[in-house]
Design a binder for these strands. Structure first.
Lengths: 107, 107
DNA sequence: TAACAACATTGTTAGCACGTTATGTCGTTA
DNA sequence: TAACGACATAACGTGCTAACAATGTTGTTA
């Protein structure tokens, strides 16, 4: 059975996810993980995205606060989390982001 | 005096303005005031938009609640309010809306 | 000017968003 | 298995958002 992508997420949830300077920052930085975060020893930044720790550092808020921002974006399907050897990497879900953009242009 | 369009509104404010089902509804209805609201005796719905009263009715919330939603959209410069003979009419600010759309596609 | 209709504003309450610190979970490594 | 590092969750305080009821303001009309 084909799973809808995403499972009929509310447009309000999507907009609220990006209606935050911090989360816009995260999305912006993840456009180019190599340029915006220090070099990673494990996990290809291009393929898997940036390590959670780096995001926490750059945001300048506590670790749980950053964790929640990331969760909001993941729940909205705008970010994809990859667990790998004790770390979690985040990257943009370009497909979902593009769908959101296309929908917004119909407002 | 010509007012800048818009006066450097925060992107977060803009997104929060539309991150609400109620306000998305208002914007949607105002795409076609003639179709979505009862006929008005005064004020051309095409030119000036729909009367405040009609929006209150369709939203189904109290008048102050609707008034505040409209104020959020006006403050974000996405709606334009026109006062005319004791009534207030609201219409979409298509220029600002388009600017917002174009900006969103760069996220 | 008095009365009324159309909106806006204020006061209040409930819920949500976002920050913190503290604690829990889980995989890795010694 | 014990210890540690990475990350998630819990608990809590605070400020913002959104609802309603009540009141204020403003323009029109009698």
């Amino acid at each position: 059975m084909q799973k809808l992508i995403p499972p009929l997420l509310e447009r309000e949830q999507l907009l609220k996810a990006i209606a935050s300077e911090r989360r816009l920052q995260i999305l912006e930085w993840l456009k180019d993980p190599v340029a915006n975060f220090p070099p990673q020893e494990h996990g290809d930044p291009i393929e898997h995205g940036a390590c959670n720790l780096f995001v926490v550092d750059r945001l300048g808020v506590s670790q749980p606060a950053a964790s929640r921002h990331l969760k909001v974006l993941v729940d909205a399907d705008l970010l994809i989390a990859t667990r790998r050897k004790g770390w979690v990497y985040y990257r943009r879900n370009e497909v979902a982001i593009r769908q959101l953009m296309e929908w917004v242009t119909t407002i």
